[in-house]
Design a protein around this nucleic acid. Structure first.
Length: 373
DNA sequence: CGACCACCTTATTTTACCTCA
DNA sequence: CTTGAGGTAAAATAAGGTGGT
């Protein structure tokens, strides 16, 4: 039996956040990162989780023709029969309340007709023209985007921290923002200027907080997108589909990275615990050996066969003919009872720090009775 | 062959911190 | 002592490239 750490499909575990997120501290700056860790006990060596996830994604994509909602929320296709430990990091960034219901494929999309809740506070009228030229093609091929300043230039809106979006380069030389049309036009001319000047600098868009929050929320529902969802998201956020796609790719990468960090930390703690346990057992073994040499009669016990009870995970002895001494004791108890003079072993059973779920070891007794089994 | 993905890398932006006038 | 500007390193992240499926 070995411990398998799986990089779970974190997106399936976000459901519980939907209520908590509303109450998140609104002033936190860091973007949210949500992930969970599944600690399943695997007997087959090795997390093939990526394959699993991949097949899930394929399934999702293959179901593209279906109503999108049908692919959500079941999450029942994984970890069947297991109760994995999940470490969930709550999102730090505030997520507007209405995001979920305004996802393009969300089932309760109808709520957008409510004027007050529309578009999670997105300036829908303004359209968040973050990086789209008016009349820009819906999908810009990657060939076009390579090394091309195109829309990326005018897309550099900034969040000023008070909810305003600004357009500009370095944070120290913000330009005064005009209206969006003017900015778009200005950016457009800048882009064309760059083309004319042969400047091929890659301008990087910074998504607005609203866009990020929206994407974040949709990521919680699907950590991959089918083309339909991608287009819908892009349309809703006034981004290019390619940008949505890239955002999801990067988001998955960040999740995986964080998950790896968490896994690493967990394994480190496991290792420390096991090292300590190993040290303790070594010490106990030494004590038993010392006891054997000092009191040979003590060890003249029949050989026993150890079996593990599958229900309570206790190791019990299938005792042989000559019955061993008293039942329901562990080594330390027996040792303490028989060699009270041995100061090194005079710890009471309570002092033996057995971890709670660790299999108990009963080398000298019949082990616990299984009245409840 | 095209689409999509993971993974790696690059380039840009943001942030935090420090120094100095 | 406080403040704001400037510099810099580190972190964050959007996007490009590549190879696999």
């Amino acid at each position: 039996m070995e411990l398998g750490l799986s990089l779970g499909d974190a997106s399936k575990s976000f459901g519980f956040l939907k209520d908590n997120k509303i109450q998140q501290e609104p002033t936190k700056k860091k973007s949210s990162l949500d992930f969970c860790m599944d600690l399943g006990l695997s007997s087959s060596g090795g997390g093939n989780q990526e394959k699993t996830q991949k097949s899930d994604e394929n399934g999702e994509e293959n179901g593209e023709d279906d109503d999108d909602e049908t692919s959500e929320g079941d999450g029942s296709d994984e970890n069947q029969g297991e109760a994995p430990v999940q470490l969930n990091l709550l999102p730090l960034a505030p997520v507007p309340r209405q995001i979920s219901s305004n996802l393009p494929w969300s089932s309760d999309n109808g709520s957008s007709e409510n004027g007050s809740s529309g578009n999670m506070g997105l300036p829908a009228a303004r359209g968040l023209d973050v990086n789209r030229l008016p009349g820009a093609a819906e999908e810009v091929s990657s060939a076009n985007s390579v090394g091309s300043p195109f829309q990326m230039d005018f897309g550099v809106y900034r969040n000023t921290g008070n909810g305003n979006l600004q357009l500009g380069g370095n944070k120290r030389d913000f330009e005064a923002t005009g209206n969006d049309a003017v900015e778009a036009e200005r950016a457009s001319s800048r882009a064309s200027d760059d083309d004319e000047n042969g400047l091929n600098t890659r301008k990087k868009l910074r998504l607005s907080k609203e866009q990020s929050a929206f994407l974040e929320e949709s990521f919680k529902e699907h950590n991959t997108l089918n083309p339909k969802q991608k287009l819908a998201l892009a349309k809703q956020l006034n981004l290019r589909p390619r940008q949505v796609e890239v955002w999801f790719q990067n988001r998955r990468a960040r999740t995986k990275l964080k998950q790896t960090e968490v896994d690493c930390e967990y394994l480190k703690r496991c290792c420390e615990t096991l090292t300590e346990e190993n040290r303790r057992l070594h010490k106990e073994l030494q004590e038993l050996r010392a006891l054997k040499t000092s009191n040979p009669f003590y060890m003249q016990l029949p050989a026993t066969t150890l079996t593990m009870c599958p229900s309570c995970e206790r190791v019990a002895t299938a005792s042989t003919a000559a019955g061993p001494p008293p039942a329901t004791t562990n080594a330390a108890v027996t040792i303490a009872a028989t060699t009270a003079k041995t100061t090194a072993i005079d710890a009471t059973p309570k002092a033996i720090p057995f971890p709670l779920n660790r299999p108990r070891f009963y080398p000298f007794s019949q082990g616990p009775t299984h009245s409840n089994s």
